[in-house]
Amino acid sequence: MHALIQGLILGILTGGVYALMASGQTLIFGIMKVVNLAQGAMVILAAYFSYTLFADFGVDPLLAIPLTTAVMFGLGVVIQLVFLRPLKREDSAQLSLLVTFAVALLLEGFMSVTWRTTYRSINTDYANASWTLFGYQFTVVRMIAFVLSLVSLGLLFLLLNRTRFGRAVRATVQNPMSAELLGVESKRVAALGFGLGAATAAAAGSVYGLLYPFNSGSHYDLISELLSIVVLGGMGSVGGAVIAALIVSTSSAVVATMFNPTWSSFTFFVILILVLLIRPQGLFGTVERGAL
């Protein structure tokens, strides 16, 4: 029982970070119908940025978040303009998938050249601190990660629901053609939306760097987890992605604490298969249109 609850706590705290990463990914899919296989690589790139800022300039990763977010936003817009906008054919969904895979490889290559492939971790002075409450451990870093993720998700929610840009994004997700007829500039929304997805990856990356050691190859593990979350939540549904992230991360944390850490990474795959068998469109997905 103790292990179960400890696993639940761990899973929920970690789930926030995954929710953040996956919300960017599902947003990009909702807007452009692009499965962004580079999302994991962008997260790791942002983690490296905050690593460098911390190791070389002594900037705390938490303070670095606005900076990395801004940089990654710009990078995201550039990637969309250079690599994704030119694809205009009817099979652009398939092509864009491969293009984002290539972008992921490009980023991986860049990261391995710049930071080499040794594992890095951001060791702040609070990295190993923890609180004990009723016999359960709450590590400070995970608490911070959770709060930060909630704040970022809250900002994303406000942006989507309270601004003109957010309304344009939601309109594009629901029906791109009508949105365009009503004066939404779909090209600009696509570019900015990809930037926004990259920005959430950046915020998540700084937090991820605090939680786990990483190297340039880490994005492979990340991307398969993220994709299962997005599929589970329903492609294009931000709310679904958040809930799916919590489900996936708590169940894998529970498996890790109660059984064996080796098999925890399989939990998400088992969940994915069950989803595909029972409800292929995911928890909150609609078959025809994206939902937000």
Partner: peptide
């Protein structure tokens, strides 16, 4: 049969996940 219940994009996702799971299995 399972993977092809989904269409192109999701299918790609499921198959790439399959690859990583197979690799993890080989390691573990």
């Amino acid at each position: 049969w399972i993977a092809m219940r989904t269409r192109a994009d999701v299918f790609a996702i499921v198959t790439i996940t399959l690859l990583f799971v197979a690799q993890t299995l080989a390691f573990n």
